[in-house]
Design a protein around this nucleic acid. Structure first.
Lengths: 164, 164
DNA sequence: GTCTATACGCTGATAGAC
DNA sequence: GTCTATCAGCGTATAGAC
C-alpha cells in the first residue's frame, strides 16, 4: 500500500478515502480482466468464424489484452490465489468456464478437420501457458503487436516442424 | 517458517538449529534445480544426438525434473525474484545461460533442416512457458509420464495443424 | 536439539485534526 | 480529501533454559 501511495503521491492512509482495502484492489483488477476475457470469448463463440479462425481470434485477443492491460494481467498467473471468498470462487469459476470454452473451440477445430487429432488437454494447457506468460516476455522484446500475433499463431498452431 | 515447522513437527524456533535463514532454504532449493538443468543441458549438448533429437531430450528432461522435483520446481516461475544478492545474480546468470543454450539448439535444428525457419525467440518463449508451468498442471491430470512426454513433444514440435 | 519467551521490523488499516 | 500519529497482527529470528 505504501508503494501505491508513493506512486499516487500521497500517504498510505489517504488511499483509504478511495478504496476499502488492499483486497478490494486485487479483486477489482482481477475481475475486470476475467470479465473482459469472458465477454471476448462470448463474442468469438457467437461469431460465424470457423473453429480454426476462432482459435486465431482467441490468440489475438490474448495479445491485445496483454498489451492493453499488462499490469493487471500480470496478476492472473499467480496472484489470484490471494483472493478471499467469495471472490476466489467467482474468479475460479470464470476461469474454468473460459478454459472449457477454449477447449470446445479446439475440439470443434478437430471435428471440422482443420487441426490434427491432438490430445486436447495438453494442447489447451500448452497454448494457455504461452498466452498467460506473454506479459512477462513481450515488453523485453522490441516486437510489434501485429508481428507478435502472426508469429504466435504460427508457433502455437503450426508448431516448429510443420511448415517445411 | 511456522508452516514448515508444523510439517516437521517442531516449533518454528527449532528450525534454526538446522538452517541459517528462510532465505537460505529458498536459495538451496533454487540452486539445486538450476544446477540440475545446467548439467542436463551440458550432457545433451555434448551428445551425438541431432539437433531435433536434442530438442526432444530437453523436453523429456523438463518432464522428468517436473515429476521428480515438483515442489522445488514450483519456485522457478515466480519465487526466484525473492532471492537476495549475490544469489539472485547467480540464478539469473544460470537461467540466461540455459536459455541461450536452448535457443542454440533450436537454431541448430533450423540449420540442419529438421524444423521450419520460425522466429527463434517466440519459439523459445512458447516452449519454455509450457515446460515451466508443467508442474502446476500435470498433477491434476492422471496422465502417465511417458504419454505426457510423447504428447508434449507432439504439441510443442509438431503443433496442432501439422500432422494432418 | 528442542523448547518458551520475546525482540523487532514491516504492513494493512483506523482515528481524528485540519 | 489529505495529513500525522498510531495500532495490532504477523513473520523472521534470537536468547537462554533444559
Amino acid at each position: 500500500m505504501r508503494d501505491i501511495a508513493r506512486a499516487m503521491e500521497m500517504e498510505a492512509a489517504s488511499l483509504y478515502n478511495h478504496i476499502d482495502s488492499k483486497q478490494s484492489i486485487l479483486n477489482a483488477l482481477l475481475m475486470d480482466i476475467a470479465n473482459r476475457f469472458t465477454v471476448g470469448m462470448q463474442q468469438i463463440q457467437s461469431s460465424s468464424l470457423t473453429a480454426l479462425e476462432q482459435l486465431e481470434a482467441l490468440i489475438d485477443q490474448h495479445v491485445d489484452m496483454t498489451v492493453g492491460y499488462t499490469d493487471a494481467i500480470s496478476l492472473v498467473p499467480s496472484e489470484w490465489i490471494h483472493l478471499e471468498e467469495p471472490h476466489l470462487k467467482e474468479f475460479v469459476t470464470l476461469r474454468k468456464n473460459y478454459e472449457d470454452a477454449f477447449k470446445a473451440v479446439i475440439l470443434a477445430a478437430i471435428e471440422e478437420g482443420s487441426i490434427a487429432e491432438v490430445d486436447v488437454d495438453v494442447a489447451l494447457f500448452s497454448t494457455l501457458s504461452t498466452l498467460r506468460w506473454l506479459y512477462s516476455w513481450y515488453t523485453k522484446q522490441g516486437i510489434k503487436v501485429e508481428l507478435l500475433k502472426k508469429e504466435l499463431k504460427r508457433t502455437l498452431l503450426q508448431g516448429l516442424i510443420s511448415s517445411l
